[in-house]
């Protein structure tokens, strides 16, 4: 795993070297993202189905959900990494509609956090899309 998993605020984005792949961890079920034991790190592939992609309001909702947990939350779009607690990072992911991102959680309550966080990321929205 490359790149720091901690740190809040809009610091410089971490970008993995070209060609780097993020393997699923050995104890992670590739379909559900759940681990056999422990509190992470867990990873899950989440499709962005919101027709506006990961737009600022969705990113803000995700950030506020992250704040309910103490675990570290990282979202990867390709080789670009976002701290889940940083709105700037999340906007900078530029996650388009129908793209897949990788949600990664690690820490004491990671197993509790992964489902709600994946639910927000994969939410179809319901916002007023005319504005």
């Amino acid at each position: 795993m490359t790149g720091k998993l901690s740190g809040n605020g809009p610091g410089p984005r971490d970008v993995l070297p070209q060609g780097t792949r993020l393997p699923l961890l050995p104890d992670t079920n590739p379909l559900t993202g759940t681990a056999a034991s422990g509190e992470g790190p867990f990873r899950r592939v989440v499709r962005i189905v919101n027709p506006n992609g990961l737009h600022p309001r969705l990113a803000d909702w995700f950030k506020r959900t992250c704040a309910q947990y103490v675990c570290t939350v990282v979202v990867w779009n390709g080789e670009t990494r976002a701290d889940g607690n940083s709105l700037w990072d999340l906007i900078g992911l530029m996650a388009m509609p129908d793209s897949d991102v990788i949600l990664e959680v690690d820490g004491p309550d990671a197993s509790k956090a992964i489902d709600p966080l994946a639910g927000v990321l994969g939410s179809p929205g319901g916002e007023n899309y005319t504005i």
Partner: peptide
Amino acid sequence: PGDHLRALEAVVR
């Protein structure tokens, strides 16, 4: 929406 997201990314970057 793609152009919109690209512009927002450009702003924060």
